[in-house]
């Protein structure tokens, strides 16, 4: 398989671009929908490593460029790259994914440090009820009944600091650090999700669904076999891929931390740009988490599906 023409041109054009034109190039490249569509489709078709390697290389060049638009261009492709990577890894092993791995590892290592060279540490405070805030006064809402939890609320405490990082730098992706790296990389996508294109949201949902369901025949039946609790008119159709046992591709390994990262993006996407695909992906991940018995993921998916049901039923009333 060879590269589509637009992608080849894209590769050649950027290489021969003089430095003073990079800025104007950057401001237009994200609008080139033919190119982005071709790139998404390219990754989706799981091509040979030698076809993909130059593309991955250029995407990394974009990602580490000073032009924020170029960086965003690469960032929008991250979910589909992750899907392609996991999929290729499971079918043909480590040798076939070198280019993809280099891109993902590069992005990860860039994320471990801030532009000024300091380690990237994220912190925020976790508010406590006992500290008065601009929105409340502890004494006024405190409970009437004298219970332990009511008392503990008045136990005066400062807000605690939540902190993540600094993240270790890695030289290679191994079985041990793979999922942690992937969730950090995906985080760069989800923390800016509101500024990314609808097209990238679309492929994000598709990638999540695929990561969850590849290799399974009918995970959705987990729910439908229980007593039918609630059925959404627009809930996803029970999927059935009509293939024989044994023909299925291997299942993709996916850790709770990666799924939780996906879900935080999907929740936004479901409300803002892709209601159907987003909802379907959330359900797919819910079924997968039920299969794997991931308690933390189930907390999130149950909360999301439950809150989405209320949204749907209340919007129907009005």
């Amino acid at each position: 398989m060879t590269l589509p023409k637009t992608v080849r041109e894209w590769l050649a054009e950027f290489k021969s671009l003089p430095d003073n034109e990079v800025h104007s190039y950057a401001s237009t490249v994200r609008q080139n929908e033919e190119l982005t569509t071709n790139l998404y489709c390219l990754f989706e078709s799981l091509p040979q490593a030698e076809v993909l390697d130059p593309v991955c290389h250029q995407l990394f060049e974009f990602y580490r460029s000073k032009e924020s638009e170029l960086k965003t261009f690469s960032r929008e492709l991250i979910p589909v790259v992750i899907w392609t990577y996991l999929s290729a890894l499971s079918t043909s092993g480590k040798k076939s994914v070198r280019g993809l791995e280099a891109f993902l590892l590069g992005v990860y290592n860039l994320e471990t440090t801030l532009p000024d060279g300091k380690p990237n540490v994220k912190t925020f405070r976790i508010p406590t009820f006992s500290q008065p805030s601009i929105y409340h006064e502890p004494s006024s809402i405190s409970s009437i009944s004298l219970t332990e939890s009511a008392l503990s609320r008045l136990d005066r405490r400062e807000a605690e600091e939540w902190c993540s990082g600094p993240l270790p730098q890695y030289e290679a992706i191994t079985g041990q650090n793979r999922q942690a790296i992937l969730s950090t990389v995906l985080q760069t996508f989800t923390t800016e999700i509101a500024e990314l294109t609808t097209q990238s949201h679309h492929w994000f949902c598709k990638s999540c669904s695929r990561i969850a369901t590849t290799g399974f025949l009918s995970l959705g039946d987990i729910q439908s076999q229980e007593e039918t609790a609630f059925s959404l008119s627009d809930s996803p159709e029970p999927r059935r891929r009509h293939s024989q046992y044994g023909d299925l591709p291997p299942r993709l390994a996916v850790s709770p931390s990666l799924i939780i990262e996906m879900l935080s993006g999907l929740y936004y996407v479901t409300f803002n740009s892709q209601p159907h695909l987003g909802l379907k992906a959330i359900y797919d991940l819910h079924y997968r988490a039920s299969y794997e018995l991931y308690a933390d993921v189930l907390l999130v998916t149950s909360a999301m599906t439950n809150s989405l049901q209320t949204v749907v039923s209340s919007s129907r009333d009005s």
Binding site: F124, I126, P127, T128, S133, I134, Y135, H136
Partner: peptide, 22 residues
């Protein structure tokens, strides 16, 4: 609400958590 020692959220998670707490 006013005062010196009020907790003022500085980013998304802080504000969301505070609101949910209330």
């Amino acid at each position: 609400y006013s005062g010196d020692n009020l907790f003022v959220p500085r980013e998304l998670h802080e504000e969301a958590l505070l609101l949910l707490l209330v």
